[in-house]
Design a protein around this nucleic acid. Structure first.
Lengths: 195, 195
DNA sequence: TTTTTGTTTGACATTAACGTCAGACAAAAG
DNA sequence: CTTTTGTCTGACGTTAATGTCAAACAAAAA
């Protein structure tokens, strides 16, 4: 086929994402990815010049993807509590599909090659911070630096996912038990943040 | 010297810890570590049979070290609020010394080779969970699963450290600004958890 | 058809990181 | 002193992972 066919390229990227984010094989080689995608390794080098390029592309697209997902909720015309609630839902649904994505991103973010593409803070985040400020002025939520409120929300959602392997084994919980725990947290997070 | 001398062995381990936890070079090679320690790479293989062994030892000792630090506070005969406050202090002091330790541990925990040494939950954690339960019964803190309270505490402390490179750059904060933010969080965490 | 263009493959070259080994060396034990 | 034991070094071999290349191939364009 002579037509510009990005089917294979997409397949490789999707496979890489699956391996990294869903299966948690952070040290996968290009061979592993090629095998899983059912193509030869040479093809990986044909579409992406090097392993590094592929990795960075996967990472960047994951960042953008996550941001878009967040933006949609955070800039939606919803009442504040509903917005937060929906945000938690979106976050957990993604986490359910890609259990290792968070941990992967944390690693990359903390690597020294990490560089931000966009310079400014995303518009949606700014809107959300303004929402938070407004709620504080209204007395709906406890007064603090809006940034701290946001950090709290992210923390309470994400951290139990990041440490899941440790906590689940330490307290000898089954998969379903831990998932119940996570599900319970949604209500609890809302109560804590907006008492 | 024919005397059993664990000076060099210790030096290598300490250097590795510094490189991983303080400098954040997670992909450091045995050569890097040997160079930084001022010894030949062969020595690394002499004391630790392989790279894997060295890495696992560093990780395991870091786990134990952290646990001991926590245990000391968590099982101390302190009033609950004081205990939590001190715990946050201990946590942040460690984070200040080893900014990348958390991220490193998260990576390891989420790798598929991760295995827990000890089977049971540490005694100190059990004590802490009982403390929490007691406070809830007393009505001092909001009722929830004690495990969730613990998760919240860890989350609120740790997550802003894990995502520091991302948040700091996104909102264009200087090092001192972010550290101020972190310092402010201590009071805020206490207020949130024990209103 | 022939040509052109993009796709795919297998074989090869390169490299970086790791592990081993024989032997040098120094200090304590005999 | 000689022997023994533990420490250290340099050189070497091995491997796994990556990257490159020429050529085969298929489909669209000429």
């Amino acid at each position: 086929m002579a037509m510009r066919d990005n089917g294979t390229e997409q397949l490789i990227k999707d496979t890489a994402k699956r391996i990294f984010f869903a299966e948690g094989k952070t040290n996968a080689t290009t061979q592993d990815i090629a095998d899983a995608a059912g193509v030869t390794r040479t093809l990986v080098n044909y579409y992406f010049r090097s392993k590094d390029v592929l990795f960075k592309r996967v990472f960047d697209e994951a960042m953008i993807d996550t941001r878009n997902r967040f933006d949609e909720v955070l800039s939606a015309p919803l009442a504040f509590p509903k917005k937060v609630e929906k945000f938690i839902d979106v976050f957990y649904n993604e986490a359910l599909k890609f259990p290792y994505k968070e941990a992967f991103m944390i690693s990359e973010i903390n690597s020294h090659e990490f560089a931000l593409k966009q310079k400014e803070a995303p518009e949606a985040l700014k809107i959300f911070l303004q929402d938070i400020k407004k709620e504080m002025d209204n007395g709906t939520i406890k007064k603090m630096k809006p940034m701290n409120f946001m950090l709290n929300l992210f923390s309470l959602m994400a951290y139990p996912l990041l440490t899941r392997p440790l906590f689940q084994r330490t307290f000898e919980l089954t998969d379903t038990q831990y998932e119940t725990l996570l599900k319970d947290r949604k209500k609890m997070i809302l109560e804590i943040l907006m008492p």
